[in-house]
Design a binder for these strands. Structure first.
Lengths: 168, 168
DNA sequence: TTGTTTGTGGATATAATTTATCTATAATGG
DNA sequence: CCATTATAGATAAATTATATCCACAAACAA
């Protein structure tokens, strides 16, 4: 019942892309350095986000990955499904039919279980579809408008500290 | 996000024990034949149910496994936790702290995510703690009082067909 | 056009977890 | 004391998740 590490990685990527200067796509190789995985693996991951419609990518010089829609419209459900496919808890291996070879009652039990677990799935789908990346980022940074920077050059601390200095 | 096959196996075991003649514990070797796994493996599984307090076991001749409490008090949550431990979706690998080495914001983000996923956990815990084995069995057999039999000798169909014959 | 940068897709390796088995031992009852 | 059954530790097999490499395609710049 654990989500895969891929979901955690996807979340990190979204944070990077959401705070990336809007004009500049972020190269996946840069992300791979930050999350400490190989460039080729990071491309696999970002690809999943692209396929899901969360991110978009452009090849070529100064290309890279950027968000395909505003953070308000990116939900935790999107991220989970991008990495793992649809939420389906029931491990439907057909065991019940094999164990109770009596067709009628076995089939019936199978359906009851499918229904029970599908309801569990729905609880998660409804919940996670209401948690947006915007919610998390806003709560995390404690500000309405996200700081942006170019992750190729700067660190987040630089930007945030600079903002504090400006206020003084 | 799938439950393990073990949960499915546990469900089958509960069905067997719930319909087992109350006087007679069911030998795990008998269960293993039905679910088509080795006797030693089945003992591992039934042991988990015993540890969780769902089942009880007695060694020796005519020993075996039986339910430790009425089916009304056995919940799907009990079964899931018996097989998989507590429901915890968040794959907390510490990636966020590593990726955003800036302590303050990383720690904060980590906590936000823990909270978000813990709420998801709670939805499942609440839901599955309300689904009892009694509910499922009742719906599955369509009767209030479960048929009981000795699984060492009979099959479920035998008993159910016999009941229908009796009515005629 | 040619070379560089970046994403795509297939094959494959590594690691972690789940599933499963075997063996030795302990407990109970006949 | 013997047969039956559960318990517990070691280990094997299968599956899935994580990760890497490599050949290639798309964009762009010189």
């Amino acid at each position: 019942m654990k989500l895969t590490k891929g979901v955690e990685q996807a979340i990190c990527i979204i944070v990077l892309l959401a705070t990336q200067e809007s004009s500049a796509p972020l190269a996946s190789d840069e992300i791979s350095r930050r999350l400490d995985v190989s460039p080729s693996y990071m491309k696999k991951i970002t690809r999943k986000l692209v396929v899901q419609g969360i991110a978009m990518s452009v090849p070529g010089t100064n290309g890279g990955v950027s968000l395909a829609k505003p953070v308000e419209k990116i939900t935790m459900l999107d991220l989970i499904e991008a990495m793992e496919g649809p939420i389906e808890m029931y491990p439907d291996s057909g065991l019940i039919n094999r164990a109770f070879q009596d067709g009628q009652y076995a089939e019936r039990g199978q359906n009851i279980l499918r229904k029970v677990f599908a309801q569990g799935d729905n609880l998660l789908v409804e919940y996670f579809s209401k948690v947006t990346a915007a919610d998390l980022l806003k709560e995390g940074f404690g500000v309405e408008n996200l700081p942006t920077l170019n992750w190729n050059r700067e660190t987040l601390s630089d930007v945030l500290n600079k903002e504090q200095d400006d206020k003084k």
